[in-house]
Design a protein around this nucleic acid. Structure first.
Length: 564
RNA sequence: GUCCCCAUAGUUCAAUGGACAGAACGACUCCCUUCUAAGGAGUAGAUCGAGGUUCGACUCCUCGUGGGGAUACCA
């Protein structure tokens, strides 16, 4: 990673602790820059430019020979680093030789991180509401693996809890044999919706649901049997969609897995005086100044809640693995819940608060900008969204439709900053032009097409393996080529930054910029019609570019397309 | 009421406290006898308001305005 390398170099050369190295917006400001001179000038009260000059001397003395071409000092005091031809060549050659390992870092070596994502509820469909957690979660799994971490992706399935009471009541009262056979999960969903509709006018139903939940939790045979059926059938459905989306979990420990541990959690909480009995229930109260409302961990009918399960899960995970972090990829709305749980986990001594991170993301709003609710049946099935996307992509190209359609909606999500809300908009989501998934895939396939054609040219018939041939920067003299090279070497920086900030959109942004440079190059400079030496060199650049594009898209979980 | 999040071109979104605030869509112009026009080049267009901190603020702080969310013995 170049940013880190340069930052370390500056640290060693100057003895400064805090050094910030940035990627400047414009080429004329070099490949990298730092504002260090401002910082020092401030506490030493020396003119900025004088400080900058001094820093430059120190760095140049320390830097390896031929590492920088030069270091400029801008009028305002920025130090602008221009990498030398040798450094750039070495970096591009790394891409050609490391291939899909380029950008990999062992930064996270020896560290374990659990990512809790997707987590749908059994007996409900995967909806557009699960999309963000699933897609962002998987991207984070990929990113952290690529940073050398041991990553455990856990699908914390909602396979327990009060929704089963409602479901059991509805199932026993209204089930329809025919529909059951044809589409079990679909039938469960409509039963669930019907239950909530009818419960609005009939409070007795809610009591019945409570009763069924209790029976299930106490081990009632019939309820258990139905419950298991619901789970296996739902998982089958989920897995179909996960497969299409390229989602892979290391574990699927649902909420039910933690049930045997819940009693103990409550007992401990009471013993440690973290929790108290209050109005018949067991609650954890927080300090007044924390402004967190109390959290119930056991109801007055003795049953448990998801707060209890989450606490048990933390306890279990920490004892089973030597954990550095648990990331919860869950919507913004649950902020209070996680504040409570994290704080409680700390009070109970289960985990220090700083290893628990809520990776929140904005809501996917309905077209009127309002929240969509599953209970009222206002949901859009994920499967339906995927189909529509694939259908649209298929209008242009049938063969690549699946990859392109799904790539489009994935990119739509991942290119947005995680925490902002997204308005659900078919047109925009399925947009195949501009800053979109298909744009990146298209760019990739253009490069692939060049490489394929090069192979059959007589000139290359007997030249062995030109794809891995080294690049000669002095032959890549056009503006377009320089821009690609510049962009390529930022790849490891972009990956690291996206992981650090838990924000895949930074990687998406990087890839878009890279693709844009590539397309400009494609437009302006011909590869196959260039003079032999230049052609060879450009082919190496094309090869390196396609490699980085592919690695980046892989990390986002977007499949590349060879031809479209 | 309390707490949390958000506010950037007509629209949808970017922008680790840095150098002229980037794109895309839409609008208007151009470019297919040259490796894929799902592309490229160009024009018009934006930081909610008022203070403050800073050499420097879309970014941090305070107040206000306008949206959304959470405040369940559901998950």
């Amino acid at each position: 990673m170049m940013i880190e390398k340069i930052a370390n170099l500056i640290k060693e050369a100057t003895g400064e602790e805090e050094v910030k190295v940035m990627i400047p917006e414009q080429n004329k400001f070099g490949h990298y820059s730092t504002n260090l001179a401002f910082v020092i000038a401030k506490y030493q009260e020396i003119p900025v430019v004088a400080v900058a000059k001094e820093i430059r001397e120190k760095i140049l003395r320390k830097a390896p020979k031929n590492f920088f071409e030069r270091i400029d000092i801008a009028a305002n005091g920025f130090l602008n680093f221009f990498l030398s031809k040798e450094t750039l060549e070495e970096e591009i050659n790394k891409i050609l030789c490391l291939k899909n390992r380029y950008g990999y870092s062992d930064k996270g070596k020896g560290q374990v991180i659990i990512i809790d994502y997707s987590s749908p509820n059994v007996a409900k469909p995967l909806t557009i509401g699960h999309f963000r957690s699933t897609i962002i979660g998987q991207a984070l799994v990929n990113l952290f693996k690529f940073q050398g971490y041991k990553v455990i992706g856990d699908n914390h399935l909602g396979d327990w809890g009060a929704q089963f009471g409602a479901l059991l009541v509805a199932f026993k009262k209204w089930k329809n044999e025919k529909e059951l056979k044809e589409n079990l999960v679909g039938h469960l969903v409509s039963l669930y919706v019907r239950f909530h509709k009818e419960a609005e006018n009939n409070e007795k139903l809610l009591d019945e649901a409570k009763e069924e939940t209790k029976k299930l939790q106490e081990g009632n045979k019939e309820n258990r049997k139905l419950w298991k059926l619901f789970i296996t059938e739902s998982l089958k459905e989920f897995n179909k969609t996960y497969k299409r989306l390229g989602i892979k979990f290391s574990l699927t420990l649902g909420e039910s897995f933690y049930q045997p541990m819940l009693n103990q959690v409550v007992k401990e909480a009471l013993e440690k005086k973290v929790a108290v009995y209050n109005e018949g229930a067991v609650k954890i109260f927080f300090q007044e100044k924390e402004l967190i409302p109390p959290m119930v961990i056991q109801k007055s009918d003795d049953s448990f809640l998801y707060t209890t399960t989450d606490l048990a899960a933390i306890k279990y995970r920490v004892s089973r693995w030597h954990l550095n972090k648990i990331l919860y990829v869950v919507a913004n709305e649950q902020t209070l819940h996680f504040n409570q749980v994290f704080r409680a986990a700390e009070m109970l001594g289960y985990a220090p608060k700083n290893i628990l991170v809520h990776i929140k993301f904005g809501m996917l709003l309905g077209e009127e900008g309002k929240k969509m609710s599953t209970r009222k049946g206002e949901f859009i099935k994920l499967e339906e969204v995927l189909n529509k996307a694939v259908e649209k992509a298929g209008q242009i190209n049938k063969e690549a439709a699946e990859k392109v359609g799904i790539g489009a909606i994935k990119y739509y999500d991942l290119s947005h900053y995680r925490e902002s809300d997204i308005v659900f908009d078919w047109d925009r989501m399925l947009d195949l032009k501009g800053n979109s998934g298909p744009y990146l895939q298209y760019t990739y396939s253009r490069l692939k097409s060049i490489l394929k054609k090069a192979l059959v040219l007589p000139f290359f018939q007997n030249s062995n393996n030109f794809f891995s041939r080294k690049i000669d920067i002095s032959l890549a003299s056009s503006e377009a080529e320089k821009n690609i090279i510049r962009q390529l070497i930022y790849f490891p920086d972009a990956v690291a930054y996206a992981a650090e900030t838990y924000s895949p959109n930074h990687l998406a942004d990087y890839l878009y910029k890279l693709a844009n440079c590539i397309n400009v190059f494609y437009e302006k400079e011909s590869v196959l019609n260039a003079e032999n030496k230049i052609k060879e060199n450009r082919l190496s650049l094309v090869s390196a570019s396609s490699q980085v594009l592919k690695t980046g898209l892989d990390l986002l979980g977007i499949k590349v397309v060879e031809k479209m």
